[in-house]
Every structure is written in C-alpha cells, then in structure tokens.
Design a binder for these strands. Structure first.
Lengths: 195, 195, 195, 195
DNA sequence: GATGAATGAGAGTTCATTCAT
DNA sequence: AATGAATGAACTCTCATTCAT
C-alpha cells in the first residue's frame, strides 16, 4: 500500500523518464544533457537529482520500464491458451505495437554495453535474455508440437528480433504504414520462416 | 596513377580508420576519445588532425569505407547472370560475410542522424538508400519474373535489412556459429519469406 | 524593479568584466586565458561560463559597458543648455576623464573587427557610430551657429577621436600628468582647431 | 657588398614580411597562423622557418621595416633647410602618406608590449621614442624660434601622434578621401594647434 | 632550400554532479 | 522538494615549432 506521497513521486519519476527517453531517442545518450531533460519538464537540473541519482540511472530506468512492459505482455501471450503459431504471431504483433507506439523508449534500449557498467548491465542483460527466451521457448514448443518445421531456433530468433528491433530506426507515425499494418505484415512474413 | 606518397598516406588513413572503428564499436562514438584512437596507433592526438580534420570526419570515413565496399559487392551481384533467387541469396550472404568479418566497421554505422550534421548526413543517407534500393530492385524483379511471390517489397526489405543489421550486435568470432554458417542459415530462412 | 538575486548576479557580472578588462588590457584578448580571468577572482574556469557564455561575450560586454557609459555622458552634454564651444570642450574633457579613470576598459575597445564576428560586431559598430555622431553633430551645429569656422567635420572629428583614443596607450596613473591636467590641455589645444 | 645570394634572400624576406603584415593587419597577430602566411606565398609552413626563426621575429621585422622607413624620412625632413612650420607640416604629411600607402604595415605596429618580450621590445620602444623625439624637437625649436606658440610639447605631440596613428583604423583606399587630401587636411588642422 | 609529418602544450568549452540554502 | 551556483575533470581542436629526408 503506497502513500499518496509515494504515488506522487512515482508519477513524477515516470514523467521524467518519458521526457528523458524522448530526448535520448532523438539525440542519443551522450548527446542529451541533464539540463535539456530538466528544461523540457520546466525543472532545473539540480531537481532531477532528487528523483534519480545520476544520468545512468535515468537511462537504466527507461530501459527497465519498457522491458518490464514487454515481458509482462510476453508472459500473458505465452501463458494464453493458444497454438504456438498463434502465440508467435501475437508476440510479434505485440512487439511491433509497442515499438511503434513507444518509439522513443525502444530506441533508448540500444547498445546497453556501451552505456552501462556492471551494476546496471547485469540487470539489463538479464531482462533481454528473459525476453529472448520467450521467443526461443515458443519456437521450441512449436517445433516439438510439429506446428513449426525443424528450424535452428537461435538463428530464427535472431532474424525475428533483428527485424523487430530495426523497426525503431525507420518507423515514423507520419509514415505511409501504420503500426497496425506493420504488425500484420511482419507477423505474416516472419511466420513463413517457421512454417 | 597515384604517387608513392599518396599511397602511403592513403594507407595510413585506412590504418587510422580501422583503429578508430574498433574503438567506436566498443565504446560508442562519444565514449571514444581522440587520444585513445591515437594511442592505439602509437601516435599523438595532434597527429590525427593531420589526416582527418575532426572526429566527425573519422566516423564519416569509417561509414563510407564500409558502405563503398558493400555497394560495390552489391553491384557485382546485381549485374551477374544469375536468377533473382540466386542474387538475393548472394546479397544476403555477402552482407553476412562483411558484417561478421568487419564487425567493428558495421557497428559504427549505427544511428547516423545522431552523430552527423548536414554536410555528412546527406552523403551517408544517400549511400544507405542506394544500398537498400539494390534489395528493392532484386525483390521487385524477382516478383515480376514470378520467382518470388507477390510480397510487399518495402516490408520484406525492412525485415531482411533488420535481421542483417542486428548481426553485429550479437555475432562474436568466438561464438558457436561461424560467419559461414550464419550466412547459410540467414539466406535459407529469409528466402522462405519471398518464395 | 530588480530582485535581490538579479542585482547580486549583475554585480558579479560586473566584477568579472572589470577583472577581465584589466587582463585583456595588459595581455590582449588572445593573450588572456579564461583561467587567468577566473583565477584573479578566485573562481574556476568553469564557473565563468555560468555568467558569460563564452570568451567573446566577455569582451563584448566589456565593450558595451564602457560604450554605454560614454554615450550616456555624451547625451547629457549634448542636451545641456550650453554653447557648442562649451559642449565640445566638455565632450573632450569627459572622454579624457573616462579614458584615464577606466584605462583598461578603454584599451579593450581596440580593433573590434579582429575580435568579433557578425552577431556582436554589428552592435559594437553601431555604438561607435552613435558616439562619433555626437561629435559630428556638435561640430556641425558649431559651424552653423558661427561659433566654429567652416571646417571639414569628418577630418576634424577623426583628429579629435584619434587624439583621444591614443591616450590609453600612453597614460599612466603614475605619470607626470593627471587626468585632470590632460583633459584641460586636450580640450584647450583641440579647440584651437575649430575656432 | 652583398652577394647575389644574399640579395635574393633579402628579397624573399621582404616578400614574406609584406605578406605577413597584410594578414596581421587584417586578423591580428594571434589570429594569424604561420600556415596562412606561408600559403599566401605558395610556401609551406616549414619553409618559413628558414627565413625567420619564429613568429615573433616576423612581427618584429615588420615593425622595424616600417619604423626604419619612417625614421629615415623624418631625418631628411628634420635636416632640410626649411622653417619649423614647414618641417612640422612635412612631417605630418609624410606620416599620413606612409600610413595610407602602407596601411597594413602601420596596423601591425599596434600594442607592442602585448606581443613582445624583452629582447625585441627594447628595440621597438627605442625606435618609437626616436620617432617621437623628432616631433618633440621640431615643436621645441619652433617654440624657441617664435614660430610656434608656447605650447606643452608633450601634450601636443601626443595629440598629433594620436591623430596620425588613428588613421590606419579608418582609412580605406576606396574611401572618399585620398591619402593626399587627408595629408592636406591633417597638416592644416594640426598646425592650428601650434600657431 | 624546402617540405611533409609529427608533436605537445595549451586553449576554450561542456556537463554531470554536488550542496548550501 | 527545489534550485542557483560552483566545480573540475574531460574533451575536442589548434598551432608554433621541429626535423629527417
């Protein structure tokens, strides 16, 4: 049970993270100054340090905020009463949806080992591995159940995740394809690999 | 006909670029200092500026060195007397080969609009577009000749390039899969999308 | 109505400008480092950038501080109910007084087009022109009212300003002539040109 | 008796000095790089060091080249069989002529104590003093012979030299007044101070 | 005589971070 | 809970100078 105060702080933190993510996405981690992040929220540089202990922490929590969301969604999909084909389809669609609706957050997730040192890096990589393993699991079970062909799971997972992670680099809300259309196309085409 | 001196200087420049690319790849552009790049070559910071006018130029020429190579290879493949299926296969394989053998260079190519301002950015983007268009062309002609199914060219190209560009993030020469094996797997699986 | 904080910051800025001017005057703009200016005020280099965005700005504001003072004084003299002869005398005396009491500031005003680029240069030159025009105006009105002979206004103004601007190069508070004496001599001798 | 070689070197040195002076005049001493000076003469930076031991020497010899000329001219005027009034007139005219025809050289002479350290500074200041003393001498003799009024020699000399040294700051060959006209005006007006 | 290449000391500037208030 | 001010370490870049060839 969180107090009103705690909830207020949590809300402020998320505000900061979203703002930071947007700028990180546009200018990159190093290209972004604490001042910019603060200014966008009508705060001062100094105040940010009340909420996050340093710039690294800002990036880290951006990472985790989106990873947590992604993993929760994946869990739901994985545990749903669907065929593996359907699960893979849904996993791909869910990723596309998030990647297009939260473009900034996703861009921030790039090249973690260039930005983090040990303390945070372990956690980040753990999240990523966990996310990747859901795909592996789905592929594996799909093969076992004869829904999928006998593919090289790791290679196919890399192809799928590569295609998905590339979306942030080219997707634009003003582009010709909507997130919905991309998710349809991606799931349809990528499924052809496994079936 | 280039003089001895010109060739010598060109060689030195390439040396510098390779050295720079290796560090850029490891630590990112901003995480890399001119001093580090110089030190690795037993030079001094100041000397670097004799060969490249600034840090941006270093990154830019890394970009172009690998893009030029990639595009030349693509041209050869495109103009060869093969079926479109074979051409697509070869294009994918060639990309994997380069991406794995020149991992550092490829990593450097990431997020150009975060690192460059107008003067260089235009040229970079032009190269990328040119490279992408070879894939589009192959896909288009493959469809026209009925070798490929009636796919959405842009979406499929994005999937292919996404998968290929992701390789640098996970490939390691010490990993379980060789570049050769990856190129076989990727070409085989990606071809399933179009056929 | 300026707040306490605003006045405090303004005071600090003026402190910095005076300190900077003193060193600029002694060593020249390029011969002066930001570190020296800061050190003289027991600050660090970095802190200076909190008050002035760069070295240029420091010089620019030195310029404008003294030009503003000069112009205000000239305005008063120009609008006072005196004869043109008295006005010219006072203008010369006022300049000498300022040039001798604020020697450093005046030395800094030298060769603006070597130190400034467009953004600042326009403003600097505008101030200078404005100052010069007061002399022209006085000379012109003096001629019209028959107080002065029919002289070439521009040439005489150049002689007067030249003589005045040279003072900073040789005046020393420890010298044999006081500012007061110089102002008497200069006004008396220069008046002989126009009468 | 100088050999052919020596004369060739001397000629090259003067070429360099003129070129250097032009750039110094435009950009200031610190704003000028050895490279620029060299480039203007189609030389390389390194070659300059064959003729002048360093940048300071370049500036110093610019100084002395023009001071030598000025002093020789003054000597001639001083020793000519003319009245003191005529001598002063000629001295002023000669200075204006040189200042307008060799604008760059004259600009370079500015603020010697900011650019030189002991070795050169003494010599520079000696030249300047010598030049100034010719004016003092003329004024003094003019007073003694009752041609001039009983003026304060130092003050008047400062006015004259100030007016003359200011010319470089505003004179332009494309301006409305020719060097000839300026010399007429300046000598006429400045004479009014002493007579 | 000339130069290409290298050097190294130092400059201006930026910015994450701290902390008294 | 917020902030203004200060800091200092790091970084990019410049340039006079040197010297082997």
């Amino acid at each position: 049970m969180s107090s009103f105060k705690e909830r207020k702080i949590a809300k402020k933190k998320e505000e900061i993270l979203r703002s930071a993510a947007a700028i990180f996405a546009e200018k990159g981690y190093h290209g972004t100054t604490m001042e910019e992040v603060a200014a966008k929220l009508l705060m001062t540089k100094g105040s940010m340090y009340y909420y996050f202990k340093n710039k690294d922490a800002l990036l880290f929590h951006c990472h985790q905020m989106i990873m947590d969301k992604s993993i929760v969604t994946m869990e739901e999909i994985f545990n749903s009463p669907l065929t593996w084909t359907e699960k893979l389809t849904n996993a791909i669609k869910a990723h596309v949806q998030l990647a297009t609706s939260e473009k900034s957050m996703f861009m921030v997730m790039d090249k973690p080992n260039q930005h983090f040192t040990d303390e945070y890096l372990q956690e980040i990589l753990a999240s990523r591995t966990k996310y990747a393993q859901y795909f592996d699991q789905i592929l594996l079970e799909g093969i076992r159940s004869k829904e999928f062909q006998n593919i090289d799971v790791k290679m196919v997972r890399m192809i799928i995740l590569g295609a998905l992670n590339w979306i942030q680099e080219w997707y634009s809300p003003e582009g010709e394809k909507s997130g919905e259309e991309i998710s349809e196309a991606f799931s349809a085409y990528l499924l052809k690999i496994v079936i």
